[in-house]
Design a protein around this nucleic acid. Sequence first.
DNA 1: TTGAAAGCGTTACCAG
DNA 2: CTGGTAACGCTTTCAA
Lengths: 324, 324
Amino acid sequence: MASIKDVAKLSEVSVATVSRVLNDKGYVSEDTRKKVEQAIAELNYRPNEVARSLFKKQSKTIGLIVPDITNPYFPELAKAVEDTAMKLGYTMILCNSDEDIEKEQRYLDILLQKYVDGIIVFSNTLSMDQIRKLNIPIVSIDREISKDLPTIVVNNKKGAKLASSFLREKGCKRIAHLRGPYGIVNADERYAGYMDVVAEEEWFHEGYIVNGDYDMHSSIEATTELLRLHPEIDGIFAASDTMAIGAIKAVHKLGMKVPEDISIIGFNGIRLSEATTPELTTIVQPIYELGETALTMLVKLIEQQPMEEIFYKLDVHLVEREST
Amino acid sequence: MASIKDVAKLSEVSVATVSRVLNDKGYVSEDTRKKVEQAIAELNYRPNEVARSLFKKQSKTIGLIVPDITNPYFPELAKAVEDTAMKLGYTMILCNSDEDIEKEQRYLDILLQKYVDGIIVFSNTLSMDQIRKLNIPIVSIDREISKDLPTIVVNNKKGAKLASSFLREKGCKRIAHLRGPYGIVNADERYAGYMDVVAEEEWFHEGYIVNGDYDMHSSIEATTELLRLHPEIDGIFAASDTMAIGAIKAVHKLGMKVPEDISIIGFNGIRLSEATTPELTTIVQPIYELGETALTMLVKLIEQQPMEEIFYKLDVHLVEREST
DNA sequence: TTGAAAGCGTTACCAG
DNA sequence: CTGGTAACGCTTTCAA
């Protein structure tokens, strides 16, 4: 690949001048600019980003850390981040933490060594202490790690209330909750929203809450057991679409029908929720907007542009399909 | 961040010596090594990868270009590549071409500028000419762009034959094919495999082949139309799982049942195929192995290690579930 | 309006 | 065994 020296030689000026036309900085006469531009075209020259990074101490690259790209929620998020990054001139390094603290830490180290300009984290384990040590712009998605940290979340509790009340309005008399893992904030919030709606009902019973671990297979088991113990249940609010799909499968295996015998509602609004039979009623998150906003914030942070907001709570809404 | 100079200063040796212990190269006395290592620990020093890249003209980074990370096939592939990359000390930049030639070219440019060491491409449009110009190691997945290019594909034709014969064995008398886009190699190959099995049947009819464009919604329409014109059809081989899911939905909407009235078989073996009702019988590809092998090849190329094979055709197998 | 030169953090060559 | 130094490709300051 041609270097700036080659361009300088061909256009008979110094590298300093070439650099000036490259960056549109400082004085360059119209004549020399033309010469240089021609040389650039002729050599098909592209500035070496690595050298630039070394000097500028920034790389026009950002990192995105997600727990599991294989979970259909994250590709949609990653695409949003990447799209927006591309538009703003940044490249994205994708990191799968596999929900493993060590792997997450290793990635953080690597990203720092590579001089990424900022990182978007989707993490349940990272502490504000660790983040501060990183000493580069960070944006957190889906979890409020600290008031100081730019964060974007979704209104989980409201969504959960929406879901639970909707089931009630649909005529469900006994509504169960298939919750996500204990200690995971969004799972706890969704649980809280459910409780807000049902706790005062005279039929309510602790046994109506089971843990599906945000996983399809666990949730098949959990649902099967739930319905064995409480055959009176006629509505299930699952804290994720994946778990809702598991619940549908379990119900089918027990010889019952969705929505005739049991209504099921999910959470997230991944595209997968349109692929099932019956199609899933669900609380949809604005996943694309989530990623887009996160990246936009991050870039503002990086480029030290003023930020109006350091905290966004995006709204969710209910999409009714066939499972209720 | 501390630099090599800081380490040199603290341990009272030259940067050259520090570099030697860092890279375990050349002679260093046990004593000085200890001193240096201590200083490194004390300063929590990590070598700057950007400076290293600049000097070595390589970055321990690879690019992965895929058409659409939102299509469930690709996250599984990306994870395999990333996992393996991490193990071998490489970082992955994920690029979504959106099947857009220009965007693909733009990414290629960016990756070159960033000195990535190699690229894995999953592309239907790239030509060998363009690839040669890149002048860095490239591995192609799923498409044979040229005999000279390290490539890894899957036995599409065999899989298609497997699928078609399986439907016949299951007792289907009229087997249709929901094919992928014309001109896309793997779609054409799967079509060819289907033809191999059915072309000689006296019932065979050109109208049994319709295009679902590798998309769920198109395939719902295509299937609906297909069954309207040919109500005698009792088996469908879809060239992708996504299309198979569309077909299932179409069949349901027409008031028929899978598999009682119509058997449906897919292709790819994405995890999604287990989430449907009924669960999908499908030809599964070893997606993880595909990504793993591709990355291993790429790294061999990069590090100039000997390669036994420059071309892999991985086998597929049939997994029977509920849709047949 | 232009060029020379220092410096970004490394590595590798050559002397000692 | 160790240190000095050029070089990687670029940007920026300072002088001219």
